[in-house]
Design a protein around this nucleic acid. Structure first.
Lengths: 190, 190
DNA sequence: CCCGTTTGCCTAAACCCTTTAGGAAACTGC
DNA sequence: GCAGTTTCCTAAAGGGTTTAGGCAAACGGG
């Protein structure tokens, strides 16, 4: 029998495609084996187990998002940077829903520390260079931005804003305006 | 053999407890059957299927959150109301992580429309009565608040803020300050 | 009180996904 | 062209889901 040419890398990439097509939680070692027209057990030479596959897809998604964010932020600052970063998150989630879900898959501490997630956090912080915020408010602001982007995209893809006016596009724009305004007028501790 | 006294309601409540103990995605019809010391097939007289169980747990969680939010908002306005509502979300997520995950389980449109989710949305809007916001900005603000609360709690429970200073408690307080400030100074369309 | 009906739980069985163990065929380099 | 390694296979055990069909406990009326 001819070999299928499986590698961990090809499997993970195919797994990411599968996630986008059928949803991250439908990604299974069996489905992946079918896609390569290969017996299930064969994948276990390349993947420790099902959880390992999901973790690797998560890491791939984080890398891709970090790369896009880095590209989008280059040469921008202030509100331009804010909007560019925000749109990277949102666009990625729309183009790759399965990967986006994967990116929020819980990782153990060591894995998370070595992932592109830290790069994304650094880039989020870089946005704030265009605003005048000292520590610890800078960290609070980083956490706020992360929460808003993550939260909004999550609610939007869950269909939260689909069937009501005004449409989601307008809210997104106005929320970016509001965040920009907030960062320029960050309140002093009361 | 004595009967176990299963009802859909008891199963759903036990399922919610199970979710809090072992995680929402570990909630399975089999595990629930074991908990009642009953054969798996017996549950299928009370639940259509596994998905049905999860949906019902989600609806229960939404009800509980809506009830708590309604209680917390009674007699409060302005920043008091904002903080009270926000803390209901956060406290619920910490006390009932499985249920909280369940509450964000995707529902089909009809189910969502009949769920306590709409009550939660109404309560979020009620918070804004203490601020001076006209439509459509009010809706944008509702969506922003939903995104922040949801996003923050999600990142926090995923361990996102656990291992770095300043601690999450402080960020949460300051973010509520910032949101209050933003709502009082909502920017005009540029 | 007893008998028929309803209801609740059971056995059995099919199907899918996961994971490990061990074997055979295909590549690799000498 | 042969030894060693890699790649994929068969086999099997274990668990979750779901349906079909059966028996017995509870219930309600005569």
């Amino acid at each position: 029998m001819a070999r299928a040419g499986l590698t961990t890398d090809r499997l993970v990439r195919a797994g990411a495609e599968l996630a986008d097509e059928v949803g991250f939680d439908q990604v299974t070692v069996s489905a992946l084996a079918r896609r390569f027209d290969v017996k299930v057990a064969s994948l276990y030479s390349h993947l420790r187990n099902s959880q390992d596959l999901k973790t690797r897809i998560a890491l791939l998604a984080l890398e891709e998002m970090a790369d896009r964010a880095a590209g989008a932020l280059a040469g921008r600052s202030g509100k331009d940077a804010l909007a560019a970063f925000a749109n990277v998150c949102r666009d990625y989630a729309r183009a790759h829903p399965g990967r986006y879900t994967a990116a929020r898959h819980p990782l153990d501490d060591a894995t998370a520390a070595g992932s592109a997630g830290v790069r994304i956090a650094q880039l989020t912080r870089a946005i704030l260079r265009g605003y005048d915020l000292a520590e610890p408010d800078q960290t609070h602001a980083v956490r706020l931005l992360g929460s808003v982007f993550h939260g909004y995209v999550d609610l939007e893809t869950a269909g939260g804003f689909a069937h009501s006016a005004p449409d989601s596009e307008e809210s997104w724009d106005r929320i970016l305006d509001a965040l920009d305004s907030l960062l320029r007028n960050w309140p002093a501790r009361p």
